[in-house]
């Protein structure tokens, strides 16, 4: 029974979030007027010229995470 109510809470939260995303996506079609913030249509990608495109290794860090111990079945 505990699993059932956990599933209900999880399902309702996921359901509402998904519904809001879908409905707002459908409503976004009503808005077609936006300020342009880029100029992507006005350059030729083949005209991109690099003087420097270096990639330098700086350092590393090791993160160790203990594995969860297997739980016994009820």
């Amino acid at each position: 029974m505990e699993e059932f109510w956990s599933a209900v809470i999880l399902g309702v939260v996921m359901g509402i979030i998904l519904a809001v995303i879908v409905v707002n996506y459908m409503a976004s079609g009503l808005k077609s007027v936006h300020i342009q913030t880029s100029a992507d249509s006005y350059y030729d990608p083949n005209q991109l010229r690099f003087e420097d495109r270096s990639e330098i290794f700086i350092g590393s860090r090791l993160e160790t995470v203990p594995k969860p111990r297997p739980q016994s079945r009820r």
């Binding site: 991109l48 010229r49 690099f50 003087e51 420097d52 495109r53 270096s54 990639e55 330098i56 290794f57 700086i58 350092g59 590393s60 860090r61 090791l62 993160e63 160790t64 995470v65 203990p66 594995k67």
Partner: peptide
């Protein structure tokens, strides 16, 4: 254990 090695890089793009 699960080991995650994070490797860091400095990347530069200079051009026109």
């Amino acid at each position: 254990f699960v080991y995650k090695r994070h490797l860091y890089y400095s990347v530069r793009r200079k051009g026109s």
